[in-house]
Nucleic acid binder design. Structure first.
Length: 674
DNA sequence: AGGCCTCGAGTTCC
DNA sequence: CTCGAGGCCT
């Protein structure tokens, strides 16, 4: 038994080994998987790091030491002429630099005269691995990787793939390795058909590819839109080219499909630049999925000098793109209070990189969410970013539990609520909130909202600064911001001449404010940007609003009993009336014109997704409004058109499904300014 | 009453 | 961005 290894690490490594093995078996042997390949990668990565920290934990049968997969029954077995390796993975810049250093160190030792490596970077296509054998120029066998020694014969299905030639341009013997993929268009089409037929949707193209190849009926596979890229010669009746670059050229020359995007890199910085480039826009333009790049030492003599480990070559590595799904551990659960006093549970996570940023917290929404997913403190969970921004816990992996996990129950009271911390359920909802309003934390949220983007939008006045101001008792209510003096600010830690002046200037710049923005800032329940705008337009001025009778709210279009009641109560409260009076003394509230009508986009609803060259998303919304149109948050049958920029989100897909016209930046500007 | 559609609220990181 | 709930239309 290993010594000096904490019991916890040993136990965790064992759990990781078991789980990875089970997921791999499900995926490779039964074409099914309960977790995504990315989440599985994340578990593997954790095990690699653990084994690196405690080398004595490494076992011969660890998934880090073996190649995934075992041949299936039902298909003919093929013994590979050349054993199939699998590549090591790098997940970030530090790991790829470590690879480069290792290569340079080993080359300096073994090939001192030829020690400077150049690299060939290729795209790593997300599909199914394939090995093709040609004899005298004719395709004779196509095999899956299997366990690396024995694969399955899938010649009958691979022969139906149009881009794979049955005959090469020359009658040579060749064993070549590559990847079969399903085009993204083909995948979307296939899922559309599944949907029409009322069948469950496929999660990702990769699973279908593996399944299609293993179909016993070639016709079923032929119906699937599959493509292929080949990249590695394993056996050749002619001299094998002396470098990876020339090898790709030779494959093209033989009439095989080769991905066109390889480049040569002389430094690791160029490799990283290529990796970054393909993570961005370039990736979305190709009709196949790319999950990283493959980096190979170019020169064959250098490759041979570097050799292989038991698992794979030392001269090549897969440099994966930042995962959009990863696994991590819930270390704690705490509560947060919002500006309305609603209490939200938040998971504190072991920090982990998702889609390029480190994430340490994720919302758990409410009590029911935690119960439904059965999330416990100490649980291993799958995490992803919804819409590429907000982290969410997708799934708990209960097989990682060791009995020390703690169930979490909603507390009976919370110090965040101030006073005796009493809390209550909001009737008819899943939310809990503070019984008494106005605790320090709630007021902090309210004030931050007042200063925030959708309300007064005061530059440099975020939650952190608001907290500081409250702690020093300079600010308790929204109007107090406007009484701040430069001297007061200079007395605070972190404030210098320049920053103090900036805040004073930013406040001055917002003393003149449109009525609707002020309304948003007041935190009236159910009154957000849209409702504030229609209230502002209906009443026209602050004085008209302060004189409003209760019936006037409920008579407005778009305002029902609940919202009207909330407004009436707010404006009847003497404290709120006093606040309005003080604000009115500090601010010049701009009246808002009633509906103008007209404009080139009159009556058109526009949904915006992605980013643009010549304007921001907010500016686009303003342009729509100026043209008489209405910017909306989600696509529906009533949407006039969708304005899509670079990196569009799920709204673009929604538009395509509903047959809503999609418009680009140039066309949008033409429509706004005809 | 049921089924959209739209809006509000909370959300993370740099 | 997503979820849930309010409001309106049928």
């Amino acid at each position: 038994m290993a010594t000096g290894v904490p019991e916890e690490a040993r136990e965790r490594a064992a759990k990781l080994r078991d789980a990875i093995r089970a997921y791999r078996a499900a995926y490779h042997e039964r074409d099914e998987s309960s977790i995504s390949p990315e989440a599985l990668d994340s578990l593997k990565h954790e095990l690699v790091l653990l084994e690196k920290q405690y080398p004595s934990l490494v076992t011969a049968d660890s998934p880090t030491q073996t190649v995934a997969g075992k041949p299936l029954p039902g298909l003919k077995k093929v013994a590979h002429a050349v054993p199939q390796w699998s590549l090591d993975d790098a997940f970030d810049e530090a790991e790829i630099r470590a690879f480069d250093e290792r290569v340079r160190r080993m080359l300096a030792k073994s090939l001192p005269k030829n020690a400077q490596p150049t690299y060939v970077c290729e795209l790593k296509i997300d599909g199914a691995h394939i090995i093709l054998t040609y004899e005298k120029g004719s395709l004779t066998v196509a095999a899956t990787r299997g366990d690396g020694v024995v694969g399955e014969d899938v010649t009958h299905t691979v022969s139906t793939i149009a881009s794979i030639p049955k005959e090469l341009t020359r009658p040579v013997d060749l064993i070549v390795e590559g990847e079969i993929y399903m085009s993204r268009k083909g995948f979307a089409l296939l899922n559309k058909e599944q949907e029409k037929a009322g069948k469950p949707l496929f999660a990702n193209p990769r699973n279908i590819v593996a399944g299609s190849l293993r179909q016993l009926d070639p016709a079923a596979a032929a119906a699937r839109p599959l493509g292929a890229f080949l990249y590695d010669i394993e056996g050749f009746s002619e001299p094998v080219p002396g470098s990876q670059f020339l090898e790709l050229a030779a494959l093209r020359d033989l009439g095989l499909p080769v991905n066109p995007h390889e480049v040569r890199a002389t430094t690791i910085e160029e490799v990283i630049a290529y990796w970054k480039k393909w993570q961005g826009r370039a990736r979305d333009r190709e009709d196949y999925q790319i999950d990283g790049i493959v980096v190979k030492v170019e020169d064959r003599a250098q490759q041979q000098a570097l050799g292989h480990t038991g698992k794979g070559p030392r001269y090549a590595i897969a440099f994966k793109f930042p995962a959009e799904q990863v696994t991590t551990v819930v270390e704690d659960i705490s509560l947060q209070v919002g500006r309305t006093g609603v209490l939200t549970p938040v998971a504190h996570l072991r920090p982990v990189a998702v889609a390029g940023t480190m994430v340490a917290r994720a919302t758990l929404h409410n009590e029911d969410f935690i119960k439904e997913k059965d999330i416990r403190i100490g649980d291993t969970v799958i995490l992803q970013k919804a819409g590429d921004i907000i982290p969410e816990i997708v799934q708990v992996l209960p097989e990682f539990r060791n009995g020390k996990e703690k169930r979490w129950a909603f507390p009976k009271s919370s110090p965040l609520c101030g006073g005796d911390g009493e809390i209550e359920r909001v009737p008819g909802t899943a939310a809990w909130r503070c019984k008494i309003a106005g605790s320090f934390d709630q007021q902090l949220r309210k004030l931050a909202h007042f200063a925030g983007k959708s309300a007064l939008d005061i530059d440099g006045l975020g939650a952190k600064t608001v907290k500081l101001l409250m702690e020093h008792e300079l600010v308790a209510n929204p109007d107090d911001f406007f009484d701040l003096t430069k001297d007061e600010l200079l007395g605070l830690p972190g404030f210098k001449e320049k920053s103090a002046q900036n805040l004073i200037d930013a406040l001055a710049a917002r003393r003149s404010i449109p009525l609707d923005r002020l309304l948003v800032g007041l935190s009236i329940p159910h009154v957000g940007e849209e409702t504030a705008r229609s209230i502002a337009m209906h009443f026209g001025s602050l004085s008209a609003l302060r004189a409003a009778k209760p019936a006037e709210f409920s008579a407005m279009h778009g305002i029902g009993d609940v919202v009207a009641d909330a407004c009436t109560r707010w404006f009847a409260d003497p404290e709120n009336r006093a606040l309005l009076e003080r604000l009115a003394a500090h601010l010049s509230v701009m009246d808002v014109k009633r509906e103008g009508g007209g404009g080139p986009l009159a009556g058109v609803t526009v949904v915006i997704t992605g980013s643009f060259e010549s304007f921001s998303r907010e500016e686009a919304e303003a342009l729509v409004r100026k043209a008489g149109g209405k910017p909306a948050g989600s696509v529906s049958k009533k949407t006039g058109f969708v304005l899509a920029g670079e990196k569009p989100g799920s709204k673009l897909q929604a538009a395509q499904e509903l047959g809503i016209p999609v418009v680009d930046e140039a066309e949008f500007l033409r429509r706004v300014n005809p």
